[in-house]
Amino acid sequence: MRAISIADRAAFSGTQGVDLANHLVNASGLRVAPDRRRGRGSGVNPSGRFEPFARGPVDDGWSTLEDLPALKTEVQAETARTIITTNASPDISFDRSANPYRGCEHGCVYCFARPSHAYLGLSPGLDFETRLFVKPNAASLLAEEIARPGYVVKPLAIGTNTDPYQPIERRETLMRAMLEVLEAANHPVGIVTKSALVLRDLDILSRMAAKGLARVALSVTTLDRTLARAMEPRASTPTKRLEAVRALSEAGVPTMVMTAPIIPGLTDHEIERLLEAAKAAGARDVGYVLLRLPLEVAPLFKEWLLRHYPGRYRHVLSLLRSMRGGKDYDADWGRRMTGTGAYAMQIRRRFELAADRLELNRGRAPLRTDLFSPPKASAAGVQLSLL
C-alpha cells in the first residue's frame, strides 16, 4: 500500500485535504493493475456494500499479482420473471421502464446504476462492467406483460439503468427483439443510449416515429475525445454519437441530446458548445443532469479523478459539495438531478439561455398511446379471452 509523505499531507490542508490523503492511501491498496483493466472505467473492484467481508488485491511479496490475466467480459444468462419496472418518482418523466441487461460494458465511471450490482453479490466497480447478465426472454416477457388484461399503455423507457445498445447487444440483439414487439403492438417507446449502435434499428425506429411512437435521447457528456475515452471507455466517441443524432433526425425520429452528467470543474465549461453541437446535428431538445454520486459511486469516481485529474480533485469535489448541501450526494427528489445553491443556479441559467438562443426545447409532442393494440395472448403466458 502506498504511503503518503509528509510533503503530500502538508499540500492538502483542511477537510478536503484529509479526504484526498485518505483516498490516496485506500485506492493504492485496492487498484487493479493497469494491464488487467485496460479499456475499463473503474480502477478498483471493492466488495459490494452487502458483503460481510471487504476484499482487495494485496502484494504478499511473491509477485503473484503480476501473473493475473487481463479482465475479460463475462456474460451470463438470467431467466427474468418480469421485464417492466414501475416507479413513482416525481422528478422523472416516465413511470415504467425495461432493461434487457444488468451491468454495462461501456464502463462509465460515474454511472449511477453501478450500486445495483451489489444486489447480485458483485462489485459496483470492475464487476459492473466485466460481469454482465443478459435476459434472453426479455422480448417474450414484454409481449406477455403488455398483453395482460387491464394493462394501461404509457410510454416505455429503455436505457434508463444500463445501456440497451452496449457492445454485447451486437451479438444478443435483445433490444431489436423488444422493439419488434413494441412496433407490432404500436406501443410508444423512449430510448436513452450512448451508442451509435442504435442506428442498426433505424428501420424500426423511423417507422414507429412516423406514427408518433418513438423518440431517442443520445447522451453526450463531453466533446473532448480524450476525456470521453477515460471516463466512458467503451461507449461510442462523441463524434459518433452526434453522427447518430444527425442520422436519426434526418430519418424523422425525434432526437434529444442529454448532456448528462454535467461534472462541475471538469465538463461544465462545455455546456454552450455541447448545445451548439446538438443543434447542428439536428436535435430538437436538450437536457442535463448534474453528476450523481450515490453509495459506491462516490469512492469509485474519486479514485478515477485521482488517477486522471489529480490537480482538479479538490476543485471538482468542492464545487459538487456546494451544490449537494456539503455532501457528495443529495438523493432528495427535486434536488438530486440539478442540485441547489449559487453554482447550480448558474449552470441551470447557462443551460436555459443557450437552449433558448439555439431555439431548442420549443415544445415536445407527447408519444401517442391511442394506437396501441395488445399482442395476441399466448397459452403459455396469458389467459385467453372467452370469446
Rank of each mutant, 00 (worst) to 15 (best):
G107F: 13
S206G: 01
G252C: 12
R307V: 05
R336G: 12
I262H: 06
D67N: 13
P57S: 04
Y151W: 13
F50S: 00
A365Q: 09
L386Q: 15
T160E: 12
T85S: 09
A139N: 09
P167E: 13
A118Q: 07
A21E: 09
R96A: 15
A184R: 15
Q16S: 11
A260D: 14
S89D: 01
K376S: 10
Q76F: 10
L20Q: 08
Q383R: 13
F12S: 11
D8E: 15
L205T: 10
I271N: 01
T267A: 02
R170I: 05
P100G: 00
L306E: 10
M1G: 11
Y151T: 11
V286H: 05
I191N: 03
A147C: 11
L122A: 07
A251F: 14
Q76Y: 08
T239K: 15
L320K: 11
G39F: 10
E303P: 01
L68F: 06
R321V: 02
D224T: 01
G334M: 14
L293W: 05
L387T: 01
N186Q: 11
S236F: 00
I83R: 03
R215A: 04
L218Q: 09
I262Y: 12
T162I: 11
I204K: 05
N26E: 04
E105T: 14
E105R: 12
A342T: 04
R364M: 11
A298M: 03
P155G: 10
E180G: 09
R207C: 08
L68M: 10
I347W: 01
E145A: 04
A143W: 04
A113R: 07
S385D: 15
R273K: 15
I92K: 03
P69D: 12
E272L: 02
F112I: 15
L291V: 13
F53R: 07
A354E: 01
V32D: 10
R349C: 04
P374D: 14
G212T: 05
T338F: 00
K194C: 13
N161W: 09
V216H: 00
R40Q: 09
L306I: 08
L353V: 06
